[in-house]
């Protein structure tokens, strides 16, 4: 019996699996998940450059004892629109869905315009509206700067 590719990394009892991440972006996904904040008891598994029928190559991230919040799912959708998210409870997949990007992204990206009012220490969250889906482009609601390269702008 062929060994399932899923077994190359440890199955988890409770937590989140982010699959179908475009190859090379797993570390960015980890950054979005803010895994440093998890307790020491949680296992985090990362598989880089895994064969995928659908995508050719992909990355996978599994995080124990964490269920993904909506803002984090939105941030993943921004950099990895192909990703799927599975929520695991007691070793069973309880929810599985593709990520989807909302019309507005609040507090997920930093505006690249240093002169934007959202970068001046005012008590305001950054906010972007999606202006184009393919390829993805968003625009700052405040200074109207357009953004197409998201990875360096993700807020921690």
């Amino acid at each position: 019996m062929p060994v399932s590719k899923e077994l190359r990394i440890t199955p988890i009892r409770n937590g989140t699996v982010v699959d179908h991440i475009p190859s090379g972006l797993a570390l960015e996904v980890l950054r979005i998940l803010n895994v440093e904040a998890l307790g020491r008891e949680s296992t985090i598994s990362v598989a880089l450059h895994v064969r995928s029928q659908r995508m050719g190559w992909k990355d996978i991230v599994k995080v124990e004892n964490m269920e993904l919040s909506a803002p984090k799912a939105n941030a993943i959708a921004l950099i990895a629109p192909t990703a799927t998210i599975s929520i695991i409870r007691e070793t069973k997949v309880r929810e599985k869905h593709a990520v989807s990007l909302p019309e507005r992204l609040v507090g997920i990206l930093r505006c690249p315009n240093p002169n934007c009012i959202t970068n001046q220490g005012e008590p305001v969250d950054s906010e972007f509206e999606v202006t184009r889906r393919r390829p993805l482009a968003v625009r700052c609601v405040y200074c109207e700067r357009s953004v197409e390269d998201f990875v360096p702008l993700l807020t921690r």
Partner: peptide, 13 residues
């Protein structure tokens, strides 16, 4: 009138 882009959008909110 303000030196930062987006200031009036924030003000309006």
């Amino acid at each position: 009138r303000h030196p930062n882009e987006g200031a009036s959008r924030l003000a309006a909110q």
